[in-house]
Structures are given as structure tokens and as C-alpha cells.
Design a binder for these strands. Structure first.
Length: 847
RNA sequence: GCCGAAGUGGUGGAAUUGGUAGACACGCAAGAUUCAGGAUCUUGUGGGGGCAACUCCGUGGGGGUUCGAAUCCCCCCUUCGGCACCA
């Protein structure tokens, strides 16, 4: 018999799909639309297993929806701006554009070889002027709307990447890309006012409930970090100044025994005489290990009780949050408590627990709610009530006001790098900051540039780029030399895909009644890594809101449903002397270089540096695309981490081989039965017929309701096992066999599309299998005729009996009580209760 | 510290609303085929006890609710992820 050679059939069908342009999608028509999107890759050189998994999941959904009769949009593109291209230029002298486009070419070949059902006509690369001109256009629009602004601020600077990082891009004090510790630096930066949407973005989270994973929504909410509180002004004794503080606990206002301001607070310079001491505080700013304070020599007056309390500069008070100043209530805030202990400041209890009394002196702050004591008119009130009441009181007296604070900060987008979108701004000595007129877009990134990696914006070195006529006065002016954060590119690419190939004109799209964007948006299913749970997803949600204001998209939320796939992991191997090892560097558990015993490390995310990677090219060469896809879908549910297993991929390959052998071994018979409708005759045929309908149901619901591809595949394996143990004897039998096989092929087609196409053709059907309808199950045909009744006595299984399906509760009860084995257990004990679970189980409770 | 997810055979993982724990696969064992190995096929496979019918134990640990708990509630342990002086 002909052997299963994936290479042959996979290339054959990929060619066929491409020639027939099968996955090209057009807007409109009768069918409902379905926009299926996977996060586009950065063209780093080659795809990795994470991509294989991500795109396999997306392709199953896209192909499934297509078979279900949806008009599917399933595009792919390249997140093509970014640092690695620039670093390649610095290190190897190759131009970022050349490097990027060569990578795209190779990776595109890899994706095509995987047999993914993309509409490649919509492919975009964000580094092309036709794309990034719209980044610039959005920037200008936001500038007009007051959503883009420039300010000098202290920024997170990565010395290794020589660029600024947004807050979201700092992970544990390090750069999100290279882990290098970030340092503070003062720079002029462009910001996008994402905070203007803080409340909307937070409220929008409710809408995502059900469609997005709970923990991703939680992280978004967390990041936005809304908190309600009050701002209170504390006059500075003897000076005409007041310090505004923010607190979420106005119920502790009477317990404030000192006041702290951030080292960078505008008043710090004025209040502190000792410059050196202040500089020291600044240097300790953000150092978590220890709380440092500096007494200013000044006092503030607590407006609710006129208490004079000392003012400190404290290294732990953040200028970026709230007002940069706090009232310190050591009795009820642990940080203040520690500070008070260190500087020997008074601790005043103003909250007592509902039950019991705090024993003084305190050993730690009591941070819970309770009842107010020593708090003027509010004494005796519960914290929960006092918080609101005191807020109102402060507003009435003009001492303060209730406010909402967010943790979210504006998005700094300036990057001192070359390979990104030039910010379309011109600086003129006479006119100041002048936006580039829309008609002059795009501001093209110049190609002749020297990249040295010194940390200066590379565009500063291009006189040709730099010097420009001011659009307002035509005088000599110079361009902004910073480029945009690449997260800008990925914040709207899903909108770009809606517009098909070639140049686009978003200005003309705005406000259109029946736009293609309006037809396809929002994305119905988005699939990608959880590492973007905050950054990319939050930015995209922000952008979509701006786009809506521009009349470009119909709704606020870009992604209706989100699937965050788990990481692809593999065991690590390391040698005490030579570090991480590849599997082939290990011989019998010893390092092949030095002979030392190899340590089997934890199962960790595949990474080149840990040498625990599997190359997708190798997999496809050895097993084919279908097997690679099937394995990554079968080994774990999509949202969980997937552990690589050599045995596992062998198993997937064997399964496809078995299907191949089964169909080819029956090719003639299956062809001959074409056109005969499957009517099962005899018990075996009935069982197979029923199993086939049951499998359709199971696979459909597993995909539809839960994206549980692993159990869907398991169900198909069960069906296969049933088929292969079925011996077709009569013509009727073969018709049933054919029905079962055809069904199996249809069900597996989203998972292993090439094999399904090939075998579909071999059974005498015409291609493409993807022009077929997804099979329907018949509830009656799927119903079991007999069920196994489980009989329990006092909750323990004591007997099982095959009974006709559909018996009444009373009949089941009688059957159970009459069971011989059961009677032995019951003997003459008193039956107190009998519980019947419909069609399944009877539990007899005896004394 | 706070928020979130998870803990089930030798392994990856099933168990849809509380109703037969371990589907499916891997691995392992025995057998068939083969000169042999590989591949393939068949059968078995949670642990303990028994020749066996059978029986006891078993979903991180401890308690609880229930006729019945992997599933619900309380406490604890472990692992992973996120945030982390946010006032």
C-alpha cells in the first residue's frame, strides 16, 4: 500500500488552495461574518513553536467557522518595526529594511508551509510607508484632539536599548525586552493621553466579561487601578502655601501625625534649606529597601483639628501618583508606622476594631475598617460610613474634595531609535511646534543613515531628513527626530486588514456608512500570548476608542473574544561547567564535552538561550504540517502551557498514519458505496452509525463552546478506533463505513487539512473538502438504546446493569431494588430513601 | 504583601449543571507478525489484598455541607503568573 508521505500531499494541496484562491475573503453577502485573528509576529528570522501553536489554534477556528457557513476574514501580517532590526544593522552592517524584508520572506514561506488558511492578499508590514503614514495620521488627529502632547518628564531609560520605555514596558525594574535595569532620565517626550479614557477603559472591562479570560480582565482593571478618595489641603504654618494630599482613608484624618512629600514635589525646594540633604533624598527615591525621611523644619496644619504636624520629605512618596504628598497616619498605615518608628513620631489611634480594643503601644498598624475614636463629630461612626460622610463634610467646608485617582499614566511614545515611525512634527524657531500637514504625509524614514548605537536619535544624523521648511512660515525648521513606540503599529493593524490590498485612505473611510471596516470589525476571535495581557491589548482598546471618535469603527471594543494560549515549554538540560545544553550535546546523561553529569532542569518556556527549543522546520520536514498542528492542539488545552514531548508528536503522526492506512486499505469499497445512503443493518453497524453521530456532536460542542481541541481530537480518535474495528460485510455495511469515514474526514479537516483533502478525494469525493458543510448530528441517531445503570448503596457503587434507555424513574427504582447483587447488600436492612438520577444512577440509602 | 490560575495514575491530560474518577494519548507488559531490530496489529495496565468472585484505599493536606464531592464551603500547604511603597 502507498505510504503516507506528508510532504507530497501537503505541497499538493497548498498549491491547489493557492491556485483556487480559496481563502480570499470579500465583505458582504448572505453569510454572517466572522473575523478570526491571531497576533501578528515580529519578523525575527524564523517562526518558533509558540507561533506554530498560536497559528494552529487560529486556523482550526477559521476553517471550522468557514465550514459552518461564515464569511471568514483570516489575515496575517508583520509587526515589522523594532529594535532587533536596528541591532542587526549595528552589529552586522545590514540595513534594517533589508534584514526585515528578508526575514518576512522566509517566515512567510514557513507559514505557507504550515497550510494556514490566510487571505494573504491583505498582508501588511507595519514598516512600509503605506502603513506607517496612518500612524502619523492618527498622531496628527490625536494632536488636534488634544490627545497627543509633549512634556519634559523623568522617563524610564534602558541603557542597553538606548531608548525610553513606557511604564508598562518596565518589568520588575528592568527592560521588557532585554531585562537591563532601567534608569531615570529627564527628556522631552511625546505622550498619548490614554488617561483620558481611564474610566471608559475600566467600564469597558465589564463588556469583555465572558469573552475574555477572567485573569486578563483582572490585569487590565488592576493596571488602570482606579481608586476613590479625597484631596485635602493642609496649610503650611507661617507660609502662604498649602500642600494638597490624596487619601483613600479620610476616616483616619484625625490620626495624621505628620505629612510627607515626594523629593520631587515642587515645594520641596522651597521648604528644605539643606540642598545636599534634599539631593540625598532624591537619590534614594524609589529605593524600596529602606524608608528615608528629611524633616523640612516646617509644620502643616491639619484643617479638621488644627493640629500642627511636621512636614517631611520622604523617599517612598511617589510624585507620579495622587498629588505627590500624603498625610501620614502611622496607627493605620503600615508604611507610615515604620516611618514613625524610625523617626520617633507620635502614633495616634483613631480607628478601633468593632470587637475588642487595640493594645498600645501598637506593634503594627491597624489597617482594617472599624469605628472612629477621637475624631471630633465623627467619633463613633463606622469607617465605611465615615469615608463618605467626611468627604461630604470636607467639600461643604471647602477643605477638600472627593476625587478619583488612577494608577494608569499617559503613554510615552517617543523612542530615540531609527527603525520606527517618524513622529510628524516640525520645530520652528518662530512658530514653535508645528504638526506636519496631512497632505505632506507620510514623513518618510530616510534610508541613508548611519547606525552607531550611541543613544542619540539616529535621525539626528541625517541633515536631509532633519532640515525642512516650516509649514506655517516657510522658514528654516527642523523635524522631530524621535520615532514612535512600535506598540502604536500594533494598536490598529486589525483595522487595516479590513481594507484589502494596496494603498488605503483612512481619511476617506471616516464616517462612511457602509465601510469595509464597519463590516468586519470587531474581531470576533483574537488569539495570542498572555504576555500581551496589558500592553498591546490596553493600547488597542485605547486606539479603538479614538478610532470610533474619528468615525472609523462602529464600537469601542476591538476584540470580542480573546483566547490566550499557554507557552510552549520543554525540559532544560545543563552541565555544571558548560551551562545549557542541547539534547544532542548529552550522551547517556553526561555532557559530551566534559563528561560531567547533566542536570535535568525544570520544564521552562522554550528559549534559544536555554537551548530547549524545537525548530518548526525540522518538525515539518520530519512529520509534516498536519502532524505538527495536530500535536500542538492535542497535547494540552489551548490556554494551558504545553509541554513538548517527542513521544507525543510520534503519537500524533501515528494517528494520521492509521487514518491514511484505513482509507487507502478500503479505497475501492469506499468509492463503490458512493451515493448509497447509510442505513445501519445489524448491531455492529448501528453502533458505528450511532458513534458517528455522537462524535459529530461532541466535536462540534467542544470546538464551539469551549475551544477544547484536545478533547475534540480524543473524540475523533475514539471514532477512528470504532471504525477500524468494524468489519463491513454487506453493501449496507460499507455505506455506513463510508459515512463514518467521510464524517471523520470532515471533522478532522480543520486540524489536519491536507490529509483531509487528500483522503476526501480518494474516497471519490470532489475537492475541496472546505467547500462542504460541517456535518450535522441527529439527536435520535446519537441516542443510546441501552444505558448502563449504576446502582449505589449508601453512595457506593455496588452494581451496574444494562437497561433500556428512557425508563421512568419508577422503573429504574424497581430495577435497582430488584437487582440480585443489590439485594445481597440490602439483606433485610431498612430502605430509608431511594434517589434516582434520570437515566443514569440509583442510590439506595439504608440504615 | 495584594490579585489571579493551578495541584487528578509512571507521563500529557479527561470527567458539560454535585451523580460510575482516570476518556483519549504516551509509556510499560505480554502475545502475533518478522531471520533480527524497527514498524504494525491484538490484549492488559490507578494502588494494596486475594487463585478467584471480590474487596479496601484513592483526585495536594485537614475539616464541613450532601443520599452522593475532583467538582460546593472553611482552614492550611505547594507551584506558577501578574502587580508591588499607588497613600
Amino acid at each position: 500500500m502507498e505510504k503516507y508521505v506528508p510532504d507530497e500531499i501537503e505541497l499538493k494541496w497548498q498549491r491547489y488552495w493557492e491556485e483556487r484562491d480559496l481563502f480570499r475573503s470579500l465583505p458582504g453577502g448572505e453569510k454572517p461574518k466572522f473575523y478570526c485573528l491571531e497576533m501578528f509576529p515580529y519578523p525575527s528570522g524564523r517562526i518558533h513553536m509558540g507561533h506554530v501553536r498560536n497559528y494552529a489554534i487560529g486556523d482550526v477556528i477559521a476553517r471550522y467557522k468557514r465550514l459552518r457557513g461564515y464569511n471568514v476574514l483570516h489575515p496575517m501580517g508583520w509587526d515589522a518595526f523594532g529594535l532587533p532590526a536596528e541591532n542587526a544593522a549595528i552589529n552586522h552592517g545590514v540595513h534594517p529594511a533589508k534584514w526585515t524584508y528578508e526575514n518576512i520572506e522566509y517566515m512567510k514561506k514557513q507559514l505557507k508551509r504550515m497550510g494556514l488558511s490566510y487571505d494573504w492578499s491583505r498582508e501588511v508590514a507595519t514598516c512600509s510607508p503605506g502603513y506607517y503614514r496612518w500612524n502619523q495620521w492618527f498622531f496628527l488627529k490625536m494632536y488636534e484632539m488634544g490627545l497627543a502632547y509633549r512634556k519634559s518628564s523623568s522617563v524610564n531609560w534602558c541603557p542597553s536599548c538606548s531608548t525610553v520605555l513606557a511604564n508598562e514596558q518596565v518589568i520588575n525594574g528592568g527592560c521588557w525586552r532585554c531585562d537591563t535595569g532601567v534608569v531615570e532620565k529627564e527628556l522631552e517626550q511625546w505622550f498619548l493621553r490614554i488617561t483620558a479614557f481611564a474610566d471608559e477603559l475600566l467600564k469597558g472591562c465589564d463588556e469583555l466579561e465572558g469573552g475574555w479570560p477572567e485573569h486578563v480582565i483582572a490585569m487590565q482593571r488592576n493596571w488602570i487601578g482606579r481608586s476613590e478618595g479625597v484631596e485635602v489641603d493642609f496649610p503650611v504654618a507661617g507660609l502662604d502655601e498649602r500642600i494638597r494630599i490624596f487619601t483613600t482613608r479620610p476616616d483616619t484624618l484625625w490620626g495624621a501625625t505628620f505629612l510627607c512629600i515626594a523629593p520631587l514635589h515642587p515645594l520641596a525646594e522651597r521648604l528644605v534649606k539643606d540642598r545636599d540633604a534634599l539631593e540625598f533624598q532624591k537619590s534614594r527615591y524609589g529605593v524600596m529597601e529602606e524608608k528615608h525621611g528629611l524633616f523640612t523644619g516646617h509644620y502643616a496644619v491639619n484643617p479638621v483639628n488644627d493640629a500642627k504636624i511636621p512636614i517631611y520629605v520622604a523617599n517612598f512618596v511617589l510624585m507620579e501618583y495622587g498629588t505627590g504628598a500624603i498625610m501620614s497616619v502611622p496607627a493605620h498605615d503600615q508604611r507610615d508606622f515604620e516611618f514613625a518608628k524610625a523617626y520617633d513620631l507620635p502614633i495616634q489611634v483613631v480607628i478601633q476594631p468593632e470587637e475588642g480594643k487595640l493594645s498600645e503601644p501598637l506593634t503594627e498598624a491597624y489597617e482594617e475598617y472599624g469605628r472612629l475614636v477621637d475624631s471630633g463629630a465623627f467619633t463613633g461612626m463606622k469607617s465605611s460610613e465615615a469615608i463618605g460622610e467626611i468627604g461630604r463634610y470636607l467639600e461643604e467646608k471647602g477643605l477638600g474634595k472627593r476625587v478619583v485617582n488612577y494608577r494608569l499614566r499617559d503613554w510615552g511614545i517617543s523612542r530615540q531609535r531609527y527603525w520606527g515611525t517618524p513622529i510628524p512634527i516640525i520645530y520652528c524657531d518662530r512658530c514653535g511646534v508645528v504638526p506636519v500637514p496631512e497632505k505632506d504625509l507620510p514623513v518618510i524614514l530616510p534610508e541613508n543613515i548611519s547606525l552607531t548605537g550611541t543613544g542619540e536619535s539616529p535621525l539626528k544624523g541625517s541633515e536631509e531628513f532633519l532640515s525642512v521648511r516650516c509649514p506655517a512660515c516657510s522658514g528654516r525648521a527642523r523635524r522631530e527626530t524621535d520615532t514612535m513606540d512600535t506598540f502604536v503599529d500594533s494598536s490598529w493593524y486589525f483595522v487595516r486588514y479590513c481594507l484589502g490590498s494596496g494603498e488605503i485612505d483612512l481619511a476617506a473611510e471616516a464616517g462612511k456608512d457602509a465601510s469595509e471596516i464597519g463590516y468586519w470589525m470587531p474581531v470576533d476571535q483574537y488569539i495570542g500570548g498572555v504576555e500581551h495581557a496589558v500592553l498591546h491589548l490596553l493600547y488597542s482598546r485605547f486606539f479603538t476608542r479614538v478610532l470610533r471618535k474619528l468615525g472609523l469603527v462602529p464600537g469601542d471594543e476591538p476584540f470580542l473574544r480573546l483566547l490566550t494560549q499557554g507557552m510552549v515549554c520543554k525540559e532544560t538540560l545543563s552541565c555544571p561547567e558548560h551551562g545549557w545544553l542541547l539534547p544532542e550535546e548529552v550522551e547517556d546523561g553526561h555532557c559530551s564535552r566534559c563528561g560531567k553529569a547533566v542536570v535535568k532542569g525544570r520544564v521552562e518556556k522554550m528559549s534559544k538561550s536555554k537551548k530547549n527549543v524545537i525548530d518548526p522546520d525540522y518538525l515539518i520536514r520530519r512529520y509534516g504540517a498536519d502532524t505538527s498542528r495536530l500535536f500542538s492542539l492535542f497535547a494540552a488545552p489551548p490556554e494551558k502551557d504545553l509541554e513538548w514531548s517527542d513521544r507525543g508528536i510520534e503519537g500524533a503522526f501515528r494517528f494520521l498514519n492509521r487514518i491514511w492506512n484505513l482509507v487507502l486499505g478500503n479505497e475501492e469499497r469506499l468509492r463503490e458505496a458512493r451515493g448509497i445512503s447509510p442505513e445501519p443493518v445489524g448491531a455492529a453497524a448501528e453502533v458505528l452509525f450511532r458513534k458517528t453521530h455522537q462524535t459529530i456532536k461532541k466535536v462540534t460542542l467542544d470546538i464551539e463552546d469551549r475551544y477544547q481541541f484536545n478533547t475534540a481530537i480524543a473524540a475523533m480518535m475514539e471514532l477512528f478506533n470504532q471504525i477500524s474495528s468494524f468489519h463491513a460485510e454487506s453493501v449496507e455495511d460499507v455505506a455506513v463505513l463510508r459515512f463514518a469515514v467521510k464524517t471523520l474526514l470532515l471533522l478532522i479537516s480543520p486540524f489536519a487539512p491536507h490529509l483531509a483533502e487528500e483522503l476526501w478525494e480518494r474516497t471519490g469525493e470532489r475537492p475541496s473538502i472546505f467547500d462542504q458543510d460541517w456535518p450535522q448530528w441527529d439527536e435520535d441517531a446519537a441516542r443510546e438504546e441501552e444505558i448502563e445503570l449504576v446502582i449505589q448503596v449508601n453512595g457506593k457503587v455496588r452494581a451496574k446493569a444494562m437497561v433500556r434507555a428512557g425508563l421512568s424513574d419508577e422503573e429504574l427504582r424497581e430495577r435497582a431494588l430488584g437487582d440480585e447483587k443489590v439485594r445481597a447488600f440490602l439483606q433485610d436492612r431498612e430502605v430509608r430513601k431511594v434517589i434516582v438520577v434520570k437515566g443514569r444512577l440509583v442510590n439506595i440509602v439504608v440504615k
